[in-house]
Design a protein around this nucleic acid. Structure first.
Lengths: 195, 195
DNA sequence: GTCTATAGACGGATAGAC
DNA sequence: GTCTATCCGTCTATAGAC
């Protein structure tokens, strides 16, 4: 554990990390490879050794993140559809959001740009597609509309609740527990009467 | 009501409308003025008669939309802090989201780009700032963290719940009622025990 | 694995005619 | 109020030396 702890070829990981920061700050299209290279203290050309294009950088981030969501969906589909499983799916979802934090925020703040990049390759709006599966798992595939809306709102609440408070809270684990139990409570609450 | 119903100088409004569409599809930075002009059947230069810059176009959209939110916040601050007022604030918020629909989605999907544009002018991240005020109104300014998280989640749920279902639902008014009553129920529900 | 240098394209913005 | 023409900057990406 001495001398030049980073090195080897974690350069790739450092590029990803800086890219997340800058894409979050200035947006994907608003960030040039020059900026990324400068913050890393290398030149643009060096980036092209590790990634074949700018799009490839963001694609690697998308894959890392959505891979976790997809794994959760697969796991959920293999479980029985009980209330307890649903609670567990939700808890795991919150954990993914909480740990993927920075990448998650970046993707959220660049949905338009990221979706069009993805749309060029595969036919699938990223967020909406995953949300659809998660709603299916948590509400049952042919639950009435109001139930599905409730589930979507609970999941949306998780994103906003986490992202708004994560940076300003002393104890992130406590926040995670709070968000999880609030979202669970919403899932399990009966439908209110229409106003 | 005959002949050439659009004309006069609603060109400005048409530019805004097309801009919302394209910024949503390809992102703000991913959309060129050439594309906007082409879809309108005019040239780039024509746009500059109506807006002094590309940034100015998005600024006009931001102002239209956030002006409504700001008006709601002002109204709320002038009301007594009763449960009924809170329900009304929430109902009005949902109405703004539902009516501002397209602009709202565009702003959401371009947060990174839009925030940096705004940050250059005034020191204020747009979304976070408004959210802060709304949370203050709905939870009380020095409510405990968990309460504020609950409120943030309810508001976030409104955005996601509306945006995900708005395009695929037969009756938007019914969706609005559903979203409103679900969010209200969440606001008024007691805090669950931590898991 | 990182550099210098440059190709090649496209962007926002302006000038000035009509 | 819209057009043609053009300027100038920046960007992604590549070639080729070290």
């Amino acid at each position: 554990m001495i001398a030049d702890a980073r090195s080897r070829t974690d350069t790739r990981a450092r590029i990803q990390q800086v890219a997340v920061e800058l894409f979050t700050e200035h947006g994907y299209e608003g960030t040039s490879l020059r900026e990324i290279a400068e913050r890393l203290g290398v030149t643009k050309a060096a980036l092209y050794y590790h990634f074949k294009s700018k799009e490839d950088i963001v694609a690697s981030l998308v894959q890392d993140y959505y891979g976790q969501i997809d794994a959760l969906i697969e796991w959920g589909q293999a479980q029985p559809a009980t209330a307890e499983v649903r609670r567990e799916i939700l808890a795991r979802y919150v954990r993914i959001v909480a740990e993927g934090d920075k990448a998650f925020r970046m993707l959220h703040q660049n949905q338009a740009a990221v979706n069009t990049l993805a749309a060029a390759k595969a036919r699938a709006p990223l967020f909406a597609e995953r949300l659809r599966f998660l709603i299916g798992l948590l509400a049952g595939p042919d639950a009435p509309l109001a139930e599905r809306v409730k589930v979507a709102m609970a999941l949306g609440g998780v994103s906003v609740g986490w992202m708004y408070f994560a940076e300003q809270v002393p104890d992130r684990d406590e926040l995670r527990a709070t968000v999880t139990s609030l979202a669970s409570a919403m899932l399990e609450s009966p439908m209110p009467d229409a106003t």
